[in-house]
């Protein structure tokens, strides 16, 4: 099978002349189908910029991003929006649910926009709701449900269009540790069921759920940790060790 995501030497610079700031500096990596990749790094390392660029919300200054061989840099605004909607799923730290829509409506919004038939939409919503234990609250509004439920709703919304790749941006940032662990378990199980996930986090515990961790610092890819057959706990320890070596312990809480 073709490589899912190929990132080739991307750069992202802000400002002009002397004030130039290089947020991403020659970053290259690939993600294959079915992977669960974590992106780690201290604040300001370029994690968010990388995610925004990959998520097509921002454009790189130079370099190529290929999704199954298609260069997303060559797409126009409309095509990008369609691409984002049909092939990418997003999970954010602050859930990003629309407060005027019910749980069900939030979930089905991407399908409504892609003009999916109503019966198909309904079936998909029911299936996902059952899988994530949201059946009872489908008609409730975001302000009526808990943070964990909100984040699961967001996960459902991200999954509903069967995306090729899910981007998760600090998905556990606003959750208590129980809800966070539940969510990470959910993501890990999703990954076992062949969903490709890329998660940005600065939390070593969250990162330890990944199969592979990329560590960036100062806009550059510094290290790659692969879990292999190690247990999650062992992987957690090795991530912590790496962080300590990298002098970024402060961020590895």
């Amino acid at each position: 099978m073709e490589t899912l995501l190929q990132v080739k030497a991307i750069q992202k610079t802000y400002g002009k002349g002397d004030a130039t700031f290089r947020a991403l500096d020659d970053v290259s990596f690939t993600i294959e189908h079915g992977e669960f990749v974590g992106i780690m790094g201290p604040s300001g390392a370029g994690k968010s910029t990388l995610l925004n660029v990959l998520a097509t919300i921002d454009t790189p200054t130079s370099g190529e991003i290929l999704v199954e061989g298609d260069d997303i840099a060559s797409m126009n605004e409309e095509a990008l929006a369609d691409f984002r909607r049909d092939h990418l799923g997003f999970i954010f730290q602050d859930y990003n649910l629309l407060d005027s829509l019910t749980v069900r409506e939030n979930m089905l919004l991407p399908l409504a926009v892609s003009k999916t038939p109503v019966h198909e939409t309904r079936a998909k919503v029911e299936r996902l709701a059952k899988r994530f234990g949201l059946e009872g609250i489908l008609e409730q509004y975001p302000y009526q449900i808990s943070g964990g439920q909100k984040q699961r709703t967001a996960v459902c919304r991200a999954l509903i269009s069967d995306p090729k790749l899910i981007f998760a941006d600090e998905p556990t940032g606003a959750l208590d540790s129980k809800s966070a662990t539940d969510l990470l378990d959910t993501l890990a199980r999703l990954n076992e069921a062949e969903t490709t996930i890329m998660m940005v986090t600065h939390d070593a515990f969250a990162a330890s759920f990944c199969r592979r961790v990329l560590y960036i610092q100062d806009g550059q890819l510094k290290k790659e940790l692969i879990r292999g057959n190690a247990s999650r706990d062992a992987f957690y320890q090795s991530i912590l060790e790496e962080l300590a070596k990298g002098g970024a312990v402060d961020d590895a809480i």
Partner: peptide, 15 residues
């Protein structure tokens, strides 16, 4: 904020 969310989840400007 709502419209930012829409943009993030891939809803086109046209829509």
């Amino acid at each position: 904020a709502k419209y930012t969310i829409l943009q993030k989840i891939g809803i086109s400007d046209r829509d």
